[in-house]
Design a binder for these strands. Structure first.
Lengths: 127, 127
DNA sequence: ATAGATGCAAAGGGTTTGCACTTGA
DNA sequence: TCAAGTGCAAACCCTTTGCATCTAT
């Protein structure tokens, strides 16, 4: 990751303009608005490189393909909509998980994933 | 899933004899002790069918391939040891996640994964 | 000029599927 | 008997990689 290329600029821009974690093919489509010839192979190579440098963070949710988001955000979790499959950030935390930790274990991090319907899908389901 | 076959009996037996969640290829190897000609395709078809019928549960942890365990266990979460990579069941829950849910969203389930060192690895790291 | 980056196509790894054969009821 | 189940191989999907070409420096 030594050179500035229009492909990398385009991919960086995508993450500047998108809060929620993105799938590689979503990154491809969004970045192709800037660089139409961009290939999926380059997207993968660039995403992995950005994670290595610490610019991006790999977001792994249960039963979901890996997504990517900007690193350095405040501690947060995710809400997966069962209907539209979108992933939303949740800017609140359930408090200490310490009471869940078995004796002798040392916890250094936790991951919470909520499932249900997002606001839009919830509204639709009621009409 | 209407007939009793030796393949299905063998796969059921594997889950009777194993507490921890298993990967499809682990199921294959274990079940082949009973039915050596068992194929991976049949393992996948049978696992999916067993999940449909509710005999098995799909266990998805972040960044982990799907595993299968007997259904009907008490609500629990998982602790992943960063050192030995083992997955432990956590038989306690952090309480309500409701306060984390954004306005308009409807949550129906949650998944918590804890990360750190298990008792054994924690002890070792201090010596 | 030249090493790094890209695009394409082929290769991988895990899972599913089409099809002819086998087998449980 | 004969539809459900099986095994095999091919197909799929997502991700990575080899290689020739392009390009930032």
């Amino acid at each position: 990751m030594q050179r500035e290329t229009k492909q990398r600029d385009a991919i960086r821009l995508v993450f500047d303009e998108n809060e929620s974690p993105l799938l590689p093919n979503e990154v491809l489509k969004l970045a192709q608005k800037t660089v139409p010839t961009l290939s999926l192979a380059t997207v993968y190579r660039t995403l992995n490189a950005f994670v290595q440098e610490g610019m991006l963070r790999l977001v792994s949710l249960p039963a979901e393909a890996p997504r990517f988001e900007r690193a350095g955000k405040h501690h947060h979790h995710h809400f997966v909509c069962r209907n539209c499959k979108k992933v939303f950030e949740v800017h609140a935390c359930a408090g200490s998980m310490q009471k869940m930790v078995p004796a002798g274990f040392e916890m250094d991090d936790h991951e919470i994933t909520l499932y249900g319907l997002c606001a839009d899908c919830s509204k639709q389901s009621k009409n």
